[in-house]
């Protein structure tokens, strides 16, 4: 009575075929990532040592470590975070909680979407014009970080807005109906419930800028500067630029050196991503609805 008919069998076969082809795509997609990681670890792994991480480059960058570049990249990311988070989060709160759906809001949204599509080299030029020259920061960590911050603002805004929008509308209604103002509603209910999403999203997005080269090349990253920056007004080396330099600009670099640098760079990004994901899991566990 319950045996499969012709049609059942055929449908099942089609379903299996489709599932298999999707699986194939997934494998194809994951392969390059795994190969990259494998090659980096195989070739660059032996480079990684205490000395490599914590000493200065020597011999015209063909030997020694990457300490100034490591510190430079970390500073750039941190300053970029400090610069983009308040602006991005405030803008997202405005757009999500206050803005009415009119032509101005639509233009702003359109601008944000388009800003996300601007190539990073264009951001670099903007950074030179705005931060290096107009605001007279000079080529410095500050100028480079601000350039990175502008570049990541759209994604910060989008990530924040999504977290805000994930807070059920019923909570807002409940507040308004007790006579809460918009700000009271945001401050007491919406933000506390969105903050985990906002923070993790933002860390994730901004840490991606650790790998950017173009926007910092003209605005603050130095080719070779074997000492640490003293303030945000100094230039500094950065891992991404250092990788570019040792791979293409300097003769007689041992083959593993660039792989070592790349491995550290990827390591930093992966580390920040894992922190952010762990943080998200931790906070999700505490969620109250």
């Amino acid at each position: 009575m319950f045996e499969a008919t012709e049609i059942n069998i055929r449908n099942k076969r089609i379903g299996k075929g489709i599932k298999f082809s999707f699986l194939l795509m997934t494998v194809l997609l994951a392969t390059p990532v795994l190969i990259i990681l494998a090659v980096l670890i195989q070739k660059g792994g032996p480079m990684i040592s205490w000395d490599f991480l914590f000493s200065d480059p020597t011999n015209g960058m063909t030997a020694g470590g990457i300490f100034p570049a490591l510190i430079g990249t970390i500073s750039l990311v941190i300053v970029a975070l400090i610069a983009s988070v308040p602006v991005g989060v405030a803008a997202a709160i405005y757009l999500s909680e206050y803005a009415k759906d009119n032509w101005l809001t639509r233009i702003i949204n359109l601008a944000i979407i388009n800003l996300a599509g601007v190539p990073s080299i264009v951001h670099a030029l903007f950074g030179v014009g705005a931060f290096v020259l107009f605001f007279k920061f000079g080529t410095s960590i500050l100028a480079a970080s601000f350039t990175l911050a502008v570049m990541t603002l759209p994604v910060v805004i989008v990530a924040t807005r999504e977290s805000l929008q994930a807070v059920p509308y019923a909570f807002r209604e409940a507040c308004w109906n007790m006579g809460a103002t918009r700000w009271q509603t945001i401050y007491k209910v919406v933000l506390p419930n969105a903050i985990s999403g906002i923070l993790t999203g933002v860390i994730l997005e901004v840490s991606r800028t650790a790998g950017e080269t173009a926007p910092i090349m003209f605005t603050g990253a130095a080719f070779f500067l074997p000492f640490l920056p003293q303030s945000v007004f100094d230039q500094s080396m950065a891992l991404s630029l250092h990788l570019f330099v040792v791979s293409t600009q300097v003769p007689n670099v041992p083959e593993e050196l660039p792989y070592g640098v790349a491995l550290v760079l990827i390591g930093i990004v992966l580390l920040m991503n894992s922190i952010s994901i762990a943080f998200r899991f931790y906070l999700r566990g505490k969620k109250k609805w």
Binding site: P168, E173, A174, M178, G179, A180, V189
Partner: peptide, 27 residues
């Protein structure tokens, strides 16, 4: 704000805030 204080509303789906019972009452 004053109007909504005078005229309270209860919804179809209960919508307590994601706070403690006490905090809900005191909100």
């Amino acid at each position: 704000v004053q109007l909504r204080k005078q005229v309270g509303m209860v919804f179809q789906r209960p919508n307590p805030l994601p706070l403690s019972i006490r905090e809900n009452i005191l909100f």
